[in-house]
Design a protein around this nucleic acid. Structure first.
Lengths: 334, 334
DNA sequence: GCAGACTTGGAAATCGTTTTCCTGGAGGTC
DNA sequence: GACCTCCAGGAAAACGATTTCCAAGTCTGC
């Protein structure tokens, strides 16, 4: 293991000079010495020890990123956007996946704190659990006290810079668009009861329907993933036929719903319309193509990273509006 | 920032004792002191400084993971498997995305070396470029000299532990299966010319056809992603009609091909059969469902992580066989 | 009751950098 | 030419842990 001292010795200069040459400093070093140090470093194959640098400088160049599930394209897209920004600034990203376990999320913040990462990005929906949220906030506060930055993608529940998608508003606008197509009797595949994102989308949707004087939609809970959408839609297909339009609170669930209907011979959109939320890129080629609310996921991730990297006095909440996109999976009722 | 010294002082013990209590050690500490230290740490909200630990111990608990593109479900699945193993051992994962730029890959190895990560996992296809491969190997050697472990998912080109999917064999078996369905005139959406994975799958497929005495398939190059599949299939649809089966060298390209055919009124599988490779989970709900070669991606990622974490004397190459899965996108010719 | 073995606690060296001082020489001004 | 400023270079003190070595007890066995 070749250290800076080896390089300095080999170049015949002091440790300080070698450090100044190799790892950026405000101080100047004369050209001849500079050249000697660079030569020596090259010859010996010197690689700075980041742990030592982090210790000495008191701050590293690593960012912590916490997601629920990397395989979910929603998180993959956000992570991708965030990582591009980090890369462009020469920072490494440390990723933790919670698999939707809030305890793991708290544990990750603690670990990332120990790693003295420069900032932590928390992405994904919070649970509607005061206890857990409180403990998470506590852990975050501890991290901030030691100089860390925090940013979120999702709900503004943690007192940190947040990129907040307009879940309720987007869902409401979707509801109005679907009502505009003539739909009256809806079902909502609402995901888990305790998940704030799912709840916001559900209530936004219901609220808009109520404002239009339309009947209450049928609410079906389930998991927030493809299988949850499948199961919920399957239950629906068995039960009543009077529903003309199903809103799944995310695209992946909508994909599951599509599969469930297909397996049961229910045609989409002829027999029932289906809409999702997120506009996941990987799912654009589904047949029928999915009506949904588009969220600029990569941009949201990128923006959150920027917020974390360029701290401000005040807590900043940036709202991101979703854009309703009507495609083939929802039809106009005559 | 509360340090171990603060804790020790607060508990009225020495630094050494505090260290032994809080951060695992072989040495015992008496119950009363132990309790005092734990109390103090709790009260002060002590979080160990990993940079300092890494420096003192000479080895950190971070793993480096290099992927080409996190949004590509292929890499997401591998990364997920790898990260689960890392998590189960209490290790953090630092992720770098190359966006298919081999220079970035080399740069990442260098950065991860500087970070003194315990192991580096390189996933994804190598390019068929001797220069780049040589330089990457050089960087890896430098990393290994300083005690790092390396493992790959993909081709065995780097002299490191490798989990190697049977690309050629899987493609060959797929070719035989498709021939068994009565197909004779094939096209291969072969991806980029220089990409080893793409090349292996293409040559495996061609080889099997040749062995069966079937005519040469038509080879169309393009990018390795959805749009590449779309463009290649689009070109194909314009040109000849005599082709009855199209093999896209990965599922994402096959999805693009499906879309291209659909847009042009070419029915799959009635007019043309389509097969892919990988069996991406997110794509299981495509219509028609995709015939493909299943690769246990998450397991491969997990296995590579295990190889990296449990080093051996000899370089280990583990071959993973793909399993042909025939679904709806390929039909039997009568 | 005592030699030897084992255990527990602490002082201090160490890990590889950065950075603060300090020093001596060069350059500029009057 | 004296004085002041500026600057390149080096010695040494952090940074926050771990770990080696040493000293002082505490057991054990006879």
């Amino acid at each position: 293991m070749v250290t800076l001292e080896d390089v300095a010795k080999h170049a015949g200069v002091s440790l300080a000079t070698a450090s100044r040459v190799l790892n950026g400093s405000t101080r100047q070093v004369g050209a001849p010495l500079r050249a000697k140090v660079e030569m020596a470093a090259e010859q010996l194959g010197y690689r700075a020890n980041v742990a030592a640098q982090t210790l000495a400088r008191g701050a590293g160049n690593v960012i912590g990123l916490v997601v629920h599930d990397l395989v979910d394209p929603y998180f993959a897209a956000i992570a991708d956007g965030a990582m591009r920004v980090a890369e462009s600034r020469g920072l490494m990203v440390m990723v933790g996946t919670t698999h939707r376990d809030p305890e793991r999320e708290i544990a990750y913040v603690s670990t990332l704190n120990a790693q003295r990462v420069r900032a932590v990005l928390l992405t994904g929906s919070r649970l509607d659990d005061v206890q857990v949220t409180r403990r998470l906030r506590q852990e975050l506060d501890r991290y901030r006290e030691s100089g860390g930055q925090v940013a979120c993608v999702g709900q503004d529940l943690l007192g940190a810079d947040t990129v907040a998608p307009g879940n309720a508003e987007g869902a409401a606008e979707l509801a109005r668009a679907l009502a505009g197509l003539g739909h009256r009797r809806f079902a909502v595949l609402a995901g888990p009861a305790g998940l704030v994102t799912a709840r916001d989308r559900t209530t936004g949707f219901r609220g808009a329907l109520a404002a239009l004087g339309l009947p209450e939609p049928r609410i079906v809970h389930g998991t927030f993933d493809r299988d949850g959408g499948y199961a919920a839609a399957a239950g629906l297909a068995e039960a009543g036929k009077e529903i003309t339009c199903v809103f799944a609170v995310n695209d992946v669930m909508a994909m599951g719903a599509l599969a469930a209907f297909r397996d049961r011979g229910v045609r989409v959109p002829q027999d029932v319309s289906v809409a999702g939320f997120d506009d996941i890129a990987t799912l654009r080629d589904l047949v029928p193509s999915l009506s949904t609310v588009r969220l600029p996921l990569a941009d949201m991730g990128a923006r959150a990273m920027e917020l974390a990297l360029d701290p401000a006095e005040r807590v900043r909440i940036e709202r991101v509006a979703g854009e309703v996109v009507i495609r083939e999976s929802t039809r106009r009722l005559e």
